[in-house]
Amino acid sequence: MTQPAIITNVLTKRFGDFIATNAITFEVAQGEIFGFLGANGAGKTTAMRMLCGLLKPSSGEARVAGFDIYTQTEKIKQRIGYMSQKFSLYEDLTVKENIRFYAGIYGLSNQQIREKTAGLLAKLRMEDEADKLVSALPLGWKQKLSFSIAVIHEPSIVFLDEPTGGVDPITRRQFWDLIYESASKGVTIFVTTHYMDEAEYCNRISIMVDGKIRALDTPAALKQQFGAATMNDVFLQLARAKS
């Protein structure tokens, strides 16, 4: 339990002349909720894709769940969950079929799939929707379902890429209850967001500007450091400093 869930060391990604992620270095402890903030195009998604094994870094090192992101991506994939801003469930499958598919490809046994499905539906209070097509669900429900499926194989780290885009604050709050519940079981949460109220929910946050990490601390410490009342002010100060 002592080794960090994620370690990066001057991790860099270049696309031609453009440096999307510029020598970022940070550590995320196990069970931590780590907020990864930045304006659009700041390099958040690139960094996340490298950590998930979707993109080969140009230079630097990183280990996720103890595995090297250059050579052990298949092992990493077994240990992480991922939920992207692009909706990742199959709209033409029912709730149950989606659960079954993802549980199946992560290698859960039939017995486990049955138990997990029942437990998940009960927790989300979606028993009545089990046989409905996902396309018929409201966005907030889809997101909660999507998250629950992303952690169905009990990964040690979950990557969430703007998971709550487009829903109201109450639904967002409910979503964060799910995140807290997972974190309390020791799951590390790595989340990007544009909502500053969500940033406040994180244990620690980093703020990226132009491919570099400009700030990294607890929300309280950051507010103090920048002499700001809210995370929103902290973010604006950093983003403005750039231009």
Binding site: L54, I80, K86, F87, S88, L89, Y90, Y106
Partner: peptide, 14 residues
């Protein structure tokens, strides 16, 4: 198109 391929790519599917 649906974006689900990205989800599949982070799973252990070979």
């Amino acid at each position: 198109e649906a974006g689900t391929i990205e989800q599949l790519n982070v799973t252990p599917i070979r």
